[in-house]
Simulated scan of single mutants.
Amino acid sequence: MCLFVILLFFGPRAAIALWWLFEPLRWDATFSSFWLPFLGFLLAPWTTLMYVLVAPGGVTGFDWVWIGLAIVIDVASYSSGGVYGRRRQSVAS
């Protein structure tokens, strides 16, 4: 529940930082190095959060749907800014 509130108010990167501080063993069980979660923090925070949520027990079955949804959210967060900017330019012309 606390993770959900952090996501709502501060975003996925804050949730990653706080979850890593409070539950480092889960992150160590999920990732074998520092670099993959660091890159996930920078480039794909929703996917990183979802992977940490489902991966320690093994990613099987319906878990792939959740990871896929997180990938879609990450891609949408990068692509939506360009659409909004183009729409504003065309209205101003």
Rank of each mutant, 00 (worst) to 15 (best):
1 M>K: 09
2 C>N: 13
2 C>S: 14
3 L>I: 13
3 L>C: 06
3 L>A: 14
5 V>Q: 11
5 V>P: 02
6 I>W: 10
7 L>F: 02
8 L>F: 09
10 F>L: 13
12 P>W: 00
13 R>C: 02
15 A>H: 08
15 A>Y: 06
17 A>S: 11
17 A>R: 12
18 L>F: 15
19 W>G: 04
20 W>F: 15
22 F>P: 00
23 E>N: 12
23 E>Q: 08
24 P>A: 14
24 P>H: 08
25 L>V: 11
26 R>V: 15
27 W>Y: 08
27 W>Q: 08
28 D>F: 13
29 A>K: 10
29 A>S: 14
30 T>N: 06
32 S>W: 10
32 S>A: 12
32 S>P: 01
32 S>N: 12
33 S>P: 02
33 S>K: 05
35 W>H: 07
35 W>I: 13
36 L>G: 00
37 P>A: 02
37 P>N: 08
38 F>T: 13
38 F>E: 02
39 L>G: 13
39 L>W: 15
40 G>S: 03
41 F>C: 07
42 L>Y: 02
42 L>I: 15
42 L>E: 05
43 L>V: 14
43 L>T: 06
43 L>D: 01
44 A>N: 01
45 P>D: 03
45 P>T: 09
46 W>F: 14
47 T>I: 01
51 Y>M: 08
53 L>I: 07
53 L>C: 07
53 L>N: 04
54 V>L: 12
55 A>C: 04
57 G>W: 05
59 V>K: 03
59 V>Y: 03
59 V>D: 01
59 V>F: 04
59 V>G: 01
59 V>L: 14
60 T>W: 10
61 G>T: 10
62 F>S: 09
64 W>M: 09
65 V>Y: 09
65 V>C: 09
70 A>Q: 04
70 A>G: 06
71 I>M: 12
72 V>C: 11
73 I>T: 09
74 D>F: 03
74 D>H: 07
75 V>W: 01
76 A>D: 00
77 S>I: 04
78 Y>T: 03
79 S>I: 00
79 S>Q: 05
80 S>W: 11
81 G>W: 04
82 G>E: 00
84 Y>Q: 14
85 G>R: 13
85 G>V: 07
86 R>W: 04
86 R>Y: 07
87 R>L: 15
88 R>D: 02
88 R>P: 01
88 R>C: 04
89 Q>C: 00
90 S>L: 14
90 S>P: 01
91 V>K: 09
92 A>T: 11
92 A>M: 07
92 A>P: 00
93 S>N: 06
